[in-house]
Amino acid sequence: MFRPAHQQVEVPDWSQRLTTLADQAQSPDLQAFYSAGAVAPDTPLEQVPFTALDLETTGIDPEQNSILSIGLVPFSLARIRWGESRQWLVQPETTLSAESVQIHQITHADLAAAPPMSQVLPELLTTLRGQVVVVHYRAIERLFLYHAAQRCYGAGLEFPVVDTMELEARVYRKRVPGFMSRFLGHQPKSIRLADARSRFNLPFYPPHHATVDALASAELLQAQVAWRFSPQTPIRDLWR
């Protein structure tokens, strides 16, 4: 039988994995982060402490491009705590292209006074202790933070992530479109953040601002759980 792609992914037991990483960590920052651990895999979603995270970057290659800003919003299934949202501007390690200035509305002047990633990362790690991170398209956040940590600490960063884009893909990318479907000209459903949100009747937010995008994915996760899961669903079914 055909198995949907997502069921083939090997998901670690994150609470165990973080315990292991804590033992191996050399840097005190990383050690503290991993020691805070992750919730048990069978923790129901309604008890999970989430933090929605979004990075704005100079490009999509984590080795060539750098992080410009980081936004996060802590939340639970019941409430998104916008008042506790945080945002950092980061001095990029690479040069800023005119194109990315246009997209993010962040200019050289904004960044001149911003701290380098080596200062921001310890703060970020403190904030994320014990949290399950929520992103839309996990490859960006995972890889950029992995490489940033490598540059700061000489070791990469791992953490549990719920990817709202992947949750959309589970529904809309289950199978290769069949012949009839292609013949009839059916377009695959877009799983981009704004399109996914509009399917749940969530309002339009202007994109490309780290905290607003984080808020947008927090709301999206609440909607996805409301429609497709339940507050009792264990976190292991969602995280990657």
């Binding site: 916008w82 749940f200 808020l215």
Partner: peptide
């Protein structure tokens, strides 16, 4: 605007 909290409710809930 800096202090609101947010939640989503599906139709019928």
């Amino acid at each position: 605007a800096s202090r609101v909290e947010v939640a989503y409710f599906r139709a019928g809930s």
